[in-house]
């Protein structure tokens, strides 16, 4: 045994590799390359199909004022609805995850976890119907109250939509839709906080809430951001629920409770595509390209936020 060299000995030159290792490394690499190829293919398709709309004269674009004027309000609507959804859903999802992970009795926690996961399995068009027929009418009195009491805030300037099919309603429906993914991921990272760190906090005389603030939330922070980004991705790309709920007319406005709202990119594509031909189709695809770029940018931003304090992430 003393004379033989171990396979990993660098002095042995070429290392011996088992066939199983090679097969596994190859298939893993193949899968990694495949996802890049698919992404590149989609991007190439979007660029190629969007190009005619970019080069077309402004009056040929629907609306007649050029591509920017067409996509701008859509982009604004998309981001506004997604941001509302994220602002509402993230704190709620984190609270649900904390309750399941650290407060609820074990049996209740399991049941609640299943129920939250089930929310993710409901088709988005069902959320759309729920938004139109159940949620929107019930929100009208609330919107009226907002207009009366907080009307000086531009968000609630009114006039209140009589149907309740407003940007705020759309954002709330989206919030319910992205709640399961954010809370499921948050729950998993909260449960993975090592007992060692939790006990360190408790041994200093921390209450359970202080323990969560000292040890659990900072440790789970990057996971929560990751979950929120997945939720945001779903909110940005959501089509049917928005197409059903949102009453669309007009351009950019921050008024959240009136009936004049900008549409979102995905909902607009779904509604306009059947009626479109020629450059109109290229325009819709160009709006899709814009969404693609935005999603990319948002993900890069999230990465940057997470990596900014990588030294303190607990991964080392």
């Amino acid at each position: 045994m003393t004379a033989t060299r171990t396979p990993s000995d660098p002095a042995a030159g070429r290392t011996v590799r088992r066939r199983g290792d090679r097969v596994f490394a190859g298939s893993a690499k193949g899968a990694g390359i495949l996802i890049l190829v698919i992404l590149a293919g989609v991007a190439a398709f979007l660029v190629a199909e969007a190009l005619p709309a970019v080069t077309a004269p402004g009056e040929d674009i629907p609306g007649g004022e050029g591509l920017g004027a067409y996509i701008g309000p859509l982009l604004f609507g998309t981001l506004l609805a997604a941001v509302i959804a994220l602002l509402v859903a993230t704190p709620l999802a984190v609270a649900i995850a904390l309750f399941i992970a650290y407060y609820a009795p074990r049996r209740l926690a399991q049941g609640l976890g299943y129920v939250v996961d089930l929310l993710a399995a409901i088709p988005s068009i069902v959320y759309g119907f729920w938004g139109i027929y159940w949620l929107a009418p019930r929100l009208v009195p609330f919107y009226e109250w907002l207009e009366r009491n907080l009307g000086f805030v531009p968000f609630f300037a009114g006039p209140t939509s009589a149907t309740g099919r407003t940007m705020l309603t759309a954002g709330l429906v989206l919030a319910v839709m992205i709640l399961p993914i954010i809370s499921a991921i948050s729950r998993e990272v909260f449960l993975q906080v090592p007992a060692l760190h939790r006990e360190a906090a408790l041994a200093l005389g921390a209450t359970r809430w202080e323990m969560i603030r000292m040890a659990v939330l900072p440790y789970g922070r990057s996971g929560v951001i990751g979950g929120a980004m997945l939720g945001l991705g779903r909110a940005l790309g959501e089509t049917m629920a928005i197409a059903l709920v949102l009453s669309v007319s007009g351009g950019i406005t921050v008024n959240l409770i009136s009936s004049g709202n900008p549409s979102t990119i995905a909902a607009n594509v779904a509604l306009e595509f059947p009626e479109s031909s020629g450059v109109d189709v290229n325009t819709l695809i160009a709006s899709g390209l814009a969404l693609f770029v935005i999603t990319f940018a948002v993900n890069m931003l999230a990465r940057w936020i997470v990596n900014r304090r990588a030294d303190f992430s607990g991964a080392n």
Binding site: P194, L196, H197, E199, A200, A201, L202, A203, L204, G205, M214, A215, P218, Y219, R221, R309, F312, S313, G314, A315, N316
Partner: peptide, 16 residues
């Protein structure tokens, strides 16, 4: 626990 402190088997400074 505020009056009786504790040091654990494995060092556990808060990583964050």
């Amino acid at each position: 626990r505020q009056h009786i402190g504790m040091v654990f088997q494995r060092p556990n400074p808060f990583p964050t």
